[in-house]
Amino acid sequence: MSERASSLSGASGTELLRLSGVRKSFGDHVVLREVDLTIEPGQCVVLIGASGSGKSTLLRCVNLLEVVDDGVITFEGRDITDPQVDGDEVRSRMGMVFQAYNLFPHLDVIGNVTLALRLVHGVEAREARSRGLAMLDRVGLSEKALARPDDLSGGQQQRVAIARALVANPRLMLLDEVTSALDPELVGEVLDLLTELKGEGVTMLLNTHEMGFARDVADQVCFLHDGRIHERGSPDQVIGDPQEERTRAFLSRIRA
């Protein structure tokens, strides 16, 4: 694990990801108006905001699954919004986890975890398998390696999805509401895993409705509203003592 931690903080001092003036709309509907954001290596940045405020859209823009309408995203010092950039290569250096897990139902658990290692990172099958098993062990699922995703509980599926995103040592993890599809008693196991990853120095950009978790794990909390980051700061500041009226209204609504 220390190997990954050091590779993640390799570019220490300079930011890993920077968004400046990012704009994204679907038809007439402007979702992101002008988003500015930076993440240092090893940091955990948590996006909060109402449903439909564009949190998922923002993560997908960073992962180049959506093309921005304007603005610049730099990742590891390179402008990845440049149309000449190889999107597949950029995505292979990030790990993305989806709300609905999106595991591949036709592959077993180890097959899910090792697919990208073999196809994208050119890791030979045996080596991929042992790295996959080590990663499954890491998320506490080594005995489920040969199970089908559909035979796992929601919490187990989401941990497999995290293992799948993490196995190729991504520089940045993007996690899109990874607990909101889970039964309440399963949320804890996934959040505990994320807290451990944070402790190992994995850089994370995530959005969540779990304010308690956000307070524990975030280095920076960003409240997304009206296509902009309306308020940002430490969790104690933004969640504990919000300055903006909108932020207070949002927080009181989800606490109610």
Partner: peptide
């Protein structure tokens, strides 16, 4: 489509 997204997000072409 979320299956395609998952594949692409892993860096698959």
């Amino acid at each position: 489509p979320s299956q395609r997204l998952a594949g692409r997000s892993l860096g698959l072409s």
